[in-house]
């Protein structure tokens, strides 16, 4: 065998490893989740009972699925006006200017803060603040978690939609200006419709990010294994129940946690796949 062939085999082999890792992950998660699904069937997804008492063990993922979806969607809603404004600042109003460079760097720094530090800040700064202004008595819960989650996904959403917005051709904007449009009108009637699918994809991908965030949410959501009662109620997410209970779990409970991991894996994979699909259609 010659060296060229060997090189090609090595490269292909590396690529195969990636496929094997991904396949192995799916296989292990499915395998680990089997006992839970055997015991509870499809009810596992729709039951909201989480009872580890020996002999009466019963696990359902609904509170965590609900908690995950609610916090992530709420985070996305809070994130949108901020991230969208920032991407207009960077990609439209101050494109190529020094001030945009500075703001861009600051937003990048926001992305560099570890999740656990966000959690600490939320716990020691936001929580007492919320208690003081009387939002709720303990300061923790869905809203606190979502707010911090929103801050965490802003840099991601901003940099993605900034790229898309910068790609809108100047020719189109000039045509609109030449017809007498103001800048806001150019943004709302030309830039936004032209960039819409890309911007939507950016937020779908950011949602994928939010779904899997663990530490900050774990520290702020209150860790109550119930379907959240309202915006300021406590709850739990799929990621944080795993983080909280995995260490002491075995048997059916461990399998249930792995099953939740599998569901989380599937949900995030689906959301990310959707996001990339929309993104690819534009390029």
């Amino acid at each position: 065998m010659n060296a060229e062939k060997v090189t090609k085999y090595i490269l292909t082999f590396a690529a195969i490893i990636i496929v094997v890792i991904a396949g192995g992950m799916a296989f292990s998660l499915f395998g680990g989740a089997v006992p839970a699904f055997k015991e509870f069937g499809i009810k596992f997804i729709f039951s909201s009972e989480w009872n580890p008492t020996e002999g009466r063990e019963s696990y359902g993922a609904l509170p965590f699925i609900a908690g995950t979806l609610i916090t992530s969607m709420l985070a996305l809603i809070i994130c949108f006006p901020l991230a969208f404004s920032t991407s207009l600042f960077l990609g439209e109003y101050f494109k190529g200017k020094k001030i945009a460079g500075i703001l861009g760097t600051l937003v990048d720094l926001l992305a560099g803060i570890p999740s656990i530090v966000y959690g600490l800040w939320g716990f020691y700064v936001l929580k007492p603040l919320f208690v003081n202004i009387g939002i709720n008595e303990h300061g923790l819960g869905i809203f606190t978690a979502s707010l911090v989650l929103a801050i965490m996904i802003i840099p991601y959403a901003t940099s993605l939609s900034n790229e898309i917005i910068s790609m809108v051709p100047d020719e189109l904007k000039e045509a609109a200006y030449s017809l007498g449009a103001t800048r806001r009108e150019v943004i709302t009637t030309i830039v936004m419709p032209t960039a819409s699918s890309g911007v939507i994809a950016s937020y779908v991908l950011s949602l994928g990010r939010a779904l899997g965030e663990t530490m900050a949410v774990t520290m702020l959501i209150g860790n109550a294994n119930i379907i959240p009662k309202g915006l300021f109620g406590m709850g739990n997410t799929m990621a944080s129940v795993i983080a909280n209970q995995f260490g002491e779990a075995d048997g059916l409970k461990l399998s249930s946690l792995i099953a939740i991991g599998l569901l989380l894996f599937l949900i995030t994979a689906l959301v990310n796949f959707l996001g990339k699909l929309i993104m690819k259609r534009i390029y």
Binding site: A15, I18, T214, G261
Partner: peptide, 26 residues
């Protein structure tokens, strides 16, 4: 290559806690 690229995209989106579960199991 297309398949591998898609898989890498999916891997990038996997929450880190799930990777923890995987490394635990393996």
């Amino acid at each position: 290559a297309g398949t591998v690229r898609t898989i890498a995209d999916i891997l990038q989106g996997v929450p880190s806690i799930v990777l923890g579960v995987i490394a635990y199991m393996w």
